[in-house]
Amino acid sequence: MNERPIRRTHDVSLLDLVDRLLDGGVVIGGDITLAVADVDLVYVGLRALVASVETIERELGVALSASGPVLERDAL
């Protein structure tokens, strides 16, 4: 196990985290799943957060993260 992250700027990592934990992974389906409340809203909310940082960077031309994520506001 390589324990050294290659590169994890906060915003890009959060985007990767959200995409993986809420859209990837093993799914338990069927009767035994008790849904965690509002997961979909959390997904949308976190993506909106990351997207807003990128929007500020693009529109104001400032760098808030070392490497900007690839979200757009209109994608939400």
């Binding site: 196990m1 324990e3 993986r20 934990l21 809420l22 859209d23 990837g24 992974g25 093993v26 799914v27 338990i28 035994i32 799943t33 008790l34 849904a35 965690v36 997961v39």
Partner: peptide, 22 residues
């Protein structure tokens, strides 16, 4: 877990009603 064993990560929010169902 990954540091010691092979893992299939679960999607966030995976719950079961109890150990017998798991």
């Amino acid at each position: 877990l990954m540091e010691d064993v092979v893992v299939l990560p679960m999607r966030f929010g995976a719950t079961a009603a109890g150990p017998r169902q798991m």
